[in-house]
Each structure stands twice: as structure tokens, then as C-alpha cells.
Computed example of a mutant assay.
Amino acid sequence: MEEKLSVTQAWHLVQVDKAKIVDLRGPSDFARGHARGALNLPYSAKGLEERLGLLLKSAVDVILFAETTEQAEGALVQLRGGSFPVAGVIEASMQDWHDNALPVDVLVEVSLAQLSAAIVEGKIVVLDVREPIEWETGHVPDAILISLGTLKDRLHELPLEAGITVICEAGVRSSAAASLLQAEGFIGVANVPEGTGGYRNAGLPLQISENPN
């Protein structure tokens, strides 16, 4: 297994631009508190390198932060020898970040009721990171479509301080996208954990329109 890092060692590598922290926990755990600048890539048994490529340019060193040793080892197997060298694995909990007075951020989670009310009031910027084929079957009213796979190259199209609320189908891709926006300095970013699927199932009105891109 790659080198085990303390939180202070990991943060030093981040500060000198030697690596990016990839947080493998689920969206809700990530939302409650994560290392500043970390990217959220919830663990899965396959496809991690491909999904990481949606958020980072190749050859960037990464530091893994996982809930369990098994998850960390599974991620290492997938990433070893690939486009993203693993600089180490954080052997600590979020409490260790707090105990060492290292910067921790949270990601606001927006409920369907809050989202619906904000849309009616016209007080929200919603970014839909699903694929165009999903978008065309129905999307949250007045949302902006930028698929997750193109987001890192289109950040300049988004308002930096508008307080963007990110949505996908079920809250996983949107958490990854929201973490990328946070890491890039966007202010007031939020995630909709129930996603468009939850919005649809709640009987809330979806808008039908063609792919705008």
C-alpha cells in the first residue's frame, strides 16, 4: 500500500501544489465536513480513474481519503499505474483535521422543498451536470446544462459568486461537481442530494427543452 500520511503531511503537499485530495466518502459525509479543496469521488468498485478524469487533468498526483482501509486499497488497485499517481493515503479522520486546526469546509445540501421555493422566487442558479440525453427527458426549470465531463473546461462560463446549486439525477455526480466548484473558488456552492430523480418523484414540475449546447 502507498505511503500513509498524517493530516499535516497531506495538507503540506496540497499547500505546495504537489497533490490534490480525493475524498472517497459518500456525498452526505463529504457535505458535513471535508478538507479544503478536496474533490468528492464516492468510492465504487470500478471506474474510479475514468471518473477522476472528469474532474482533473491527467498526471496530477492525488492523496486518497477513505472511510475504510478496504476502500483505500480498492481505490489504489484501480489507480495504480494509471494517469493519476497516488502520493499517499490519509490515515486519519475528519476529527484529526479539526484537532490540528487545518481548514475544513462544508457543502450545503438543499432539500427539494428549498429548491422548489427558490425556483419560484427566481433566487437560485441551478447547474445540471447530467448528460444531454437525460436533460432532454426533463430538467429543473431554468437550470443550466453543463455535463460533468465538460465542467472542468467550462468553469469560465459560470458566475463565481452567484451561489450555484448543483443537481444531477441522484446526488452523486452533483456532489463531485460541487466539490470541483468549491475547490476552484466558487462562493456559496450547494448540492441537491435527492437529485432530479427525487424532484420528479415528488411530483414537482420539470421543464422539457432541447440540449442547449
Rank of each mutant, 00 (worst) to 15 (best):
E3Y: 10
V16E: 15
V16G: 09
D17P: 08
K20M: 11
I21W: 07
D23L: 06
L24W: 06
R25N: 12
G26P: 01
P27Y: 01
D29Q: 14
A31S: 15
A31C: 13
A31P: 10
H34G: 00
L39K: 02
L39A: 00
N40Y: 01
N40E: 07
L41N: 07
K46H: 12
L48T: 03
E49S: 01
R51W: 04
R51K: 09
R51S: 05
L54M: 15
L54W: 15
L54P: 05
V60M: 10
V62A: 08
L64V: 07
A66P: 14
E67R: 15
T68L: 08
Q71L: 10
Q71E: 15
E73G: 04
E73N: 14
G74E: 12
G74C: 10
A75C: 12
A75T: 09
L76T: 04
R80A: 13
G82E: 01
S83K: 13
A92V: 12
S93K: 12
M94W: 07
Q95L: 11
H98S: 09
A101H: 11
L102R: 01
V104T: 11
V106L: 12
V106D: 13
V108Q: 14
V108R: 15
E109F: 07
S111G: 09
A113D: 15
L115G: 02
A117R: 13
I119N: 04
I119R: 11
I119F: 06
E121W: 00
G122M: 10
K123C: 01
I124C: 03
V125Y: 13
L127V: 04
L127P: 11
L127K: 06
D128G: 02
V129P: 02
R130A: 06
R130P: 09
E131H: 03
P132D: 08
P132Y: 03
I133F: 15
I133K: 15
I133H: 15
E136M: 14
T137M: 10
G138M: 08
H139F: 05
V140N: 07
I144Y: 00
S147P: 13
S147L: 00
K152Y: 06
D153V: 00
D153N: 06
H156L: 09
P159F: 00
E161T: 08
I164F: 00
I164Q: 03
V166P: 02
I167W: 12
C168R: 05
C168Y: 03
R173G: 01
R173C: 00
S174T: 05
S174K: 03
A177S: 06
L181D: 07
Q182F: 00
A183Y: 10
A183L: 04
E184R: 14
G185R: 04
G185C: 04
F186M: 03
F186P: 00
I187C: 00
G188F: 11
G188M: 07
V189M: 08
A190L: 07
V192D: 13
P193A: 03
P193G: 04
E194W: 13
E194L: 15
E194H: 13
G195C: 10
T196Q: 11
T196F: 05
G198Y: 14
R200I: 11
N201F: 05
A202Y: 04
G203C: 09
P205N: 13
I208D: 02
S209A: 13
N213E: 13
N213R: 13
